[in-house]
Design a protein around this nucleic acid. Structure first.
Lengths: 254, 254
DNA sequence: CGGCAAATTGAGCATTGTCAATGTCTGTGG
DNA sequence: CCACAGACATTGACAATGCTCAATTTGCCG
């Protein structure tokens, strides 16, 4: 069942082609990357704060998350990742990992040696630029999370996370028009929103009672996207989908 | 008093040389960038959310900040910037600005056409990589801000911001061993920490009464760095100073 | 000295956290 | 197929952190 090395690199290529205009040499170099693919169980650490990783990893299939621990033992989730996301491009260029990356569900991960990544980036600058764009979009999402956690109340905060998740899953083809499977517990939701588990639970109940969502098992049904969006104050600009979705002039000016 | 174009590009060069090993061609290309330098008053917008900027800007001197507004009129400050920081490298590669950048104090800003930046990045990949590292460090700071706002209480939150500011000013040569001038109002501190103005004021008072800081005008005196650090739960790993401070093997493995 | 922006302070209140108990679902072994 | 364990979800009661409103004071600049 694990996808072949070729499939995985094709997936990467497809993603990067949305971010910059690659030529044949770029494509060939990318497809030649040495890659090891491996299945990983849920809750496994891929990178730990303080590590000096010698390989980069790409999330082929499944869900993963970034988090940091505070000195007093609290955990803050920084972002979630899904099929096709690069998990630590930053660690190809930064020397020491400043946060943890952990699988959320069972995942397939592709590992690429750090040295190969750096050679690719330096020899094929367009590929590097496409990857750079990827990390810039991640950064944009972090910025929105600062806003989410800093300025919105619990209700809007959870709603916003549900919106972000929905939109990203949709783009990845992992959601249907009515909703999606939320692959995380309320405790993880709490760690992502900076709220207590109990409060998350109450907010979810209120989201249900106000008909903004309907939950059935893991599945979150969204009967009226516009109402949820409005409750969340969600605007998808920060996801930079014009540089993610094919056909939206991903690389206008060059 | 405005620095010359050559001075400004030298400042950029010095900074980027800490992030990657540049050769003569790289240096020459960088110094040849078309650059317009301009003084800008406090509180002026350099970039607005929704803009499609056609130039990149670098903060030569002064303080600036990034922020986003929520639908209900709240403002969240995302980061602060000081002498030598790139203010919108992201906008050289992303099509639409997802947040605002505004001067905090009177500033000197260097403007560089977006097209020139992109040509430089593609023709001199090592320069591009150095700039990429810069944006990765920004992203790391955003991650820490998510943690700060999401997981720390008001007291630690303000203390942490003071630590970050102190350390960054020190590296930039803008602080002395005892403290520094904090170039912002309590309202801006509130917008950066996701707290109310009143609460920031009370926290500052408590930081004073517990001898963690002493304020005199804008100056913040820190009598015992370790005590403040500990109250904040501050760890400077996320600033990636090993890739900022000269002589710390900024580019180990290549 | 007047005029403002910024900083302080007090009082009352709301959102959200903590603690602790209970309910529900799922998978496993007999 | 049932019983049970463990993880997850839900709920109630109470406490506390932090917010809002509103009034004052202080410092700065002409």
């Amino acid at each position: 069942m694990p996808e072949s090395r070729k499939d995985v690199l094709s997936q990467m290529l497809r993603k990067l082609e949305l971010r910059a205009t690659l030529d044949d040499a770029d494509r060939k170099a990318l497809l030649a990357l040495p890659t090891r693919i491996q299945k990983v169980e849920p809750s496994v650490y891929l990178i730990r704060e303080g590590d000096r990783p010698d390989q980069s990893c790409v999330l082929v299939k499944g869900f993963a998350l970034r988090h940091k621990m505070t000195e007093d033992g609290g955990r803050q989730i920084i972002s979630f990742h899904l099929d096709g996301d690069f998990l630590d491009l930053e660690d190809s260029l930064l020397n020491i990992a400043d946060h943890n990356v952990q699988t959320l569900t069972r995942c397939e991960i592709a590992f690429i040696p750090r040295s190969a990544m750096r050679e690719l980036i330096l020899s094929y600058p367009t590929v590097g630029m496409a990857m750079w764009v990827d990390t810039l979009i991640d950064a944009s999402i972090y910025r929105e999370w600062v806003v989410n956690v800093g300025k919105r109340d619990g209700f809007a905060r959870v709603a916003h996370l549900l919106c972000e998740f929905g939109r990203r899953l949709e783009v990845a083809g992992l959601a249907n028009a009515h909703g999606y499977d939320l692959p995380m517990t309320q405790e993880q939701l709490a760690d992502a929103t900076g709220m207590s588990l109990v409060h998350v639970n109450r907010v979810l109940k209120r989201l249900g009672s106000e008909q903004l969502i309907k939950r059935k098992r893991k599945f979150v049904h969204i009967p009226d996207w516009e109402r949820l969006r409005s409750a969340a104050g969600f605007s998808e600009l920060y996801l930079h989908l014009d540089q993610v979705v094919r056909g939206h002039r991903a690389d206008r000016s060059l």
